[in-house]
Computed example of a mutant assay.
Amino acid sequence: MEHSTGAVNWQPHNLAKAPGELLRESLGHVARGSEGAMFFQWRASRAGAGKWHSAMLPHAGTDSRIWREVMELGSALANLGPVASSTVDTDVAVVFDYASGWAAEAPAQPSADLTTFNEVRRWYGALWRAGITADFAPPGGDLSRYRLVLVPALYLVSDADAANLVSYVDSGGTVLVGPYSGIVDENDQVRPGGYPGAFRDLLGVRIEEYHPLLPGEFAKLSGGSAGTVWRELGRSTGAEVLESYVDGPVAGSPAVTRNGRAWYVSTRLDEPSLDRLVGQVCAAAGVTAVLTGAPDGLEAVRRRHPDGTAYLFLINHAGTAATVAGTGTDLLSGAYVAGEVSVPAGGVVVLRDSTEEE
């Protein structure tokens, strides 16, 4: 996984990384499937476009924090050798498709504020805050291993890929679809007959018109949730209506629906509302957090070999130490912990599960 040791050079304001952030980010990538860490660039350029981009060997040389943290990372990766070739434990996939995102960014959309890439980040963020690990998957990929598939924004989708998602639900999977999805085919031609087009029958709703919101406006929902940016005028054709719009030109139209194992949300929920909905759908699908009751800022991800050997990554992004249940050997320090483990502020612990040590 390629990233940077410190500041990049292509943003309006290129902030340096905080102490320890290089290690946390790198091991966070490893926790979620990377087999190592790569950086642009090895030695900081003295001239040209890359001269203000960070490097493993900065302008300051080896007597620098960045160089010491690079060396620390190298030692950590060496200690994590046993993790190589294991896979990430997850029951959730987030559908992501570049072609669909690019198509949705074309000019003359109903709203410039409903963007695919931002929605994908927001929905993934809801999972992260809930402590739930997720893969990214293409719409036409094999989804059979997942209990739950989130489709935050899939404006463009082929018949084959739409059928793949329908088949996944028919086979027992649970899906949550976001607004402005299933609208056009792979040639960017609108599917007639009402939105959400390719997913109309799957979701049991029929939308006839979009009613975008202006910046700063909100849509009140009957269950106490709030929507921003986007609203849809429509009706249920079989889905259970969990929340509806309570005001404006779409009053009474469904905002959150459930059609068996297929859920739909027709607005861009604010963060608290999105967190509640994602939590509700996860519970219905039988998806749980890696660690129950983990404190805010503690990232927990588990990787596993086919023989059952597992490794629990605990990455503390908070400014205070975090203590959670855990037993096993920390591959980074070599220490054995029993019953509970304390992760220092800004620190990382990688436990080899105790069951593999007995």
Rank of each mutant, 00 (worst) to 15 (best):
V281Y: 07
D185P: 02
P12T: 13
S181A: 07
V120G: 02
L277I: 10
A322E: 12
V95L: 13
G238Q: 08
N259F: 09
T288D: 14
V241K: 02
V83T: 14
R65F: 03
G74Q: 12
A294E: 01
L233E: 02
R122V: 13
G141M: 04
P110F: 12
F96R: 13
A318N: 12
Y98S: 08
H3K: 03
V83N: 01
V30T: 05
V120I: 15
N316A: 06
G178K: 07
P152V: 12
A325L: 09
H53Y: 03
W10K: 02
D307I: 11
D161F: 05
D185N: 15
G74S: 10
R200M: 13
G216E: 13
R231Y: 00
G346Y: 08
D89W: 05
Y311L: 08
G347L: 05
V94Y: 05
V83H: 00
K17M: 13
V169E: 15
V205T: 15
L274F: 02
G20K: 10
H53F: 04
V205E: 10
P254A: 00
W123V: 15
T62K: 14
E358I: 13
F40H: 13
L269R: 00
L127C: 09
L214P: 00
S75G: 15
K17I: 01
A76L: 05
I315P: 00
A104C: 01
A162T: 06
R121N: 08
A325I: 04
R191H: 08
E358S: 11
L154E: 03
E240W: 03
A322Y: 04
G20F: 09
S144N: 02
T355V: 12
A84D: 02
Q109W: 03
R303Q: 06
I315K: 00
G216C: 09
A198R: 15
G140N: 04
G339A: 11
I183G: 03
R352T: 12
G61P: 06
A37H: 06
L176I: 11
N9S: 14
T5E: 05
V343W: 01
G36K: 02
L127F: 08
P295R: 07
F39V: 13
V88L: 13
R145D: 10
L22D: 04
E340N: 13
S244H: 14
D159H: 09
P254D: 00
V324A: 08
D247Y: 00
V301E: 07
E240P: 01
T237Q: 07
F199Q: 09
V229S: 02
H305G: 10
D330K: 02
G234E: 02
T87F: 08
A284L: 14
V177L: 11
L165I: 14
S34C: 14
Q11E: 14
L277M: 10
A47I: 08
G238N: 08
L143Y: 03
A49M: 10
I66P: 00
L73G: 03
H59M: 11
